[in-house]
């Protein structure tokens, strides 16, 4: 009898351990979609990558230098996206989109592109591509710690009319079917991603807004602090997994 109890406890521990495992989003894709994600000649996201690379070289009308004018060729951005979101010198937590916008308004003295604009999506995708395959390596300590804690709180809080936390699906039910879809580990390593449901490239915050709507919770505005903090927590969960941006998502 005691053996049975020990066996049951061991089995439960085993289940907990596998539930806690964070899997790369690509591992949830069908072989066809994974092949598409890996093939720049067929991946529709490359339309945005090409546009972003052109924007990188283009000087703004303000007369200030282009991105390339200060940073050099875009290939020098290798590894940058893997470190975002990150805390800026003034203490603000910035994701890659916000970092680009800040550079554009402060340094280039040009009007912000606007969240989810084609231009910002393109530049973000072109820069993120330079981290493709590199392990996510966000800073979680020091000034980032309080933001990470805020993101974790948001992730673990039940919300919306359907009263669900992120973790109830993306930790406890990973790999199970929700209608025709398999529940993933819920990390954002492929964003901006070309999502088939959207028929276009979109940011992680667009995806998070869809999650909020799914549990019938208030959709936060693009760039809202809670979403950026959540983005940091998701990146911390994904630490060590390869950046997949621009990804293909269902």
């Amino acid at each position: 009898m005691r053996h049975l109890v020990v066996l049951a406890a061991t089995l439960m521990l085993g289940a907990t351990a596998s539930a806690g495992e964070v899997r790369a989003p690509a591992s949830f894709l069908s072989p066809d979609l994974r092949a598409l994600q890996d093939d720049p000649s067929r991946h529709p996201g490359w339309l945005w990558v090409d546009g972003g690379e052109a924007l990188w070289r283009e000087a703004p009308r303000s007369g200030r230098p282009s991105c390339e004018g200060c940073h050099g060729p875009i290939d020098g951005m290798r590894g940058v996206a893997a470190r975002y979101p990150a805390v800026a010198s003034d203490g603000a937590l910035l994701n890659l989109e916000a970092r680009i916008e800040r550079c554009r308004t402060d340094n280039q003295q040009a009007p912000a592109f606007g969240y989810e604009s084609e231009a910002l999506l393109s530049l973000t995708a072109a820069i993120a591509l330079r981290s493709r395959g590199l392990p996510v390596a966000v800073e979680t300590e020091g000034a980032a710690a309080q933001h990470l804690a805020a993101g974790k709180r948001f992730y673990e809080t039940r919300q919306g009319q359907l009263n669900l936390s992120c973790g109830q699906c993306h930790d406890e039910n990973v790999g199970r079917r929700l209608r025709g879809d398999v529940i993933s580990s819920g990390v954002g390593t492929g964003f901006p991603a070309y999502r088939l449901e959207w028929n276009t490239l979109g940011s992680l915050h667009r995806r998070l807004r869809a999650c909020s709507l799914g549990v019938r919770a208030t959709q936060l505005p693009y760039g809202a602090y809670d979403y950026v903090a959540l983005e940091l927590y998701l990146a911390a969960r994904a630490r060590g997994l390869p950046v997949e941006s621009p990804g293909i998502r269902r």
Partner: peptide
């Protein structure tokens, strides 16, 4: 319930 969409 927390942060319920205004529509609901």
């Amino acid at each position: 319930l927390l942060r319920v969409d205004p529509r609901w």
